[in-house]
Measured scan of single mutants.
Amino acid sequence: NQESVVAAVLIPINTALTVGMMTTRVVSPTGIPAEDIPRLISMQVNQVVPMGTTLMPDMVKGYAP
């Protein structure tokens, strides 16, 4: 099972992602793959992401799977 990126904290809208904001977990449905965390650093979320929420591609500005 592939791990997906999950919010480790509440991430406010338009916040640039940092390593500490993200964790990984096997979830269903799957979100952004864990191995993409290095690509996500400094990208901004386009909505509020509650802690424990799986990051989906459409939540991150400029992210393309």
Rank of each mutant, 00 (worst) to 15 (best):
I13R: 08
L40F: 02
G31Q: 03
T54L: 07
V5D: 01
N1G: 07
D58I: 13
Q44N: 13
T30Q: 13
S4N: 02
S28F: 09
T30V: 15
M51L: 06
N1P: 10
P29Y: 06
T15V: 14
N46K: 10
P50R: 09
L10Y: 07
G62D: 09
P12S: 09
Q47H: 15
N46C: 05
P50W: 08
Q47M: 13
S42A: 14
V48T: 13
R39L: 07
S42R: 05
Y63K: 05
T30Y: 15
T24R: 08
V49M: 05
I32F: 10
V45M: 06
V48Q: 15
V60Q: 00
L55A: 00
A16L: 10
V45C: 03
K61W: 06
I41L: 15
P65T: 06
I11N: 00
Q2C: 03
V27R: 05
A64M: 10
T23P: 02
S28W: 03
P29K: 07
V9K: 14
Q47C: 03
A16M: 14
P50A: 15
R39I: 12
M51E: 15
M22D: 02
I32S: 02
T30P: 14
T15F: 08
N46V: 07
L40Q: 00
R25T: 12
V5R: 00
M51K: 08
P12L: 06
E3K: 03
R39W: 06
V49E: 00
I13W: 06
S28E: 15
Q2F: 10
V5Y: 01
V48H: 06
D36T: 09
L40R: 00
R25W: 11
M21W: 03
L17I: 07
T18G: 07
A34L: 05
V60N: 01
V19K: 12
M21P: 01
A16D: 14
I13D: 14
V48S: 12
M51V: 11
P65E: 15
A64D: 09
N14A: 15
V45E: 01
L55S: 01
N1V: 06
M59D: 03
A8H: 15
I37H: 04
A64W: 05
P12T: 10
T24D: 03
I41W: 08
V5I: 12
T24K: 13
V49F: 01
V26D: 15
S4L: 02
M22L: 13
R39G: 06
D58P: 10
V19G: 08
V48E: 08
L40A: 01
A8D: 08
R25E: 15
V19A: 13
L55R: 00
L40C: 04
D58G: 13
N1H: 03
I41Y: 09
G31N: 01
M59W: 04
A8W: 03
N14Q: 14
S4E: 00
I11G: 00
Y63G: 06
T53G: 05
G31Y: 02
A34I: 06
N14P: 01
P38I: 10
Q44R: 11
V26Y: 06
P33E: 03
G62C: 08
M22C: 03
A34H: 15
V45K: 00
D36S: 12
P33N: 14
V26A: 12
N14D: 14
M59Q: 07
D36A: 11
G52M: 10
A7W: 02
E3Y: 07
A64V: 13
V9G: 10
V5F: 01
M59C: 03
P29T: 07
D58T: 14
S28R: 02
S28P: 02
G62R: 04
I11V: 06
E35S: 07
A8E: 07
E35K: 03
L17V: 03
P29I: 08
A34Q: 09
N1F: 04
A64S: 10
A64Y: 05
P12Y: 06
T15P: 00
V6Q: 07
V6W: 02
R39P: 02
V5S: 02
S4K: 02
G31W: 02
I32G: 00
A34R: 05
S28V: 07
Y63N: 03
V60T: 02
A8C: 03
M56S: 12
V45H: 00
T18D: 14
M21C: 03
G31S: 04
M43I: 05
G20K: 14
A16I: 12
S4R: 02
S42M: 13
V27G: 04
A16K: 07
I11L: 13
E3I: 04
P57E: 12
T23K: 12
I32M: 04
V45I: 11
R25D: 13
V45L: 11
I41F: 04
L10R: 07
N14C: 06
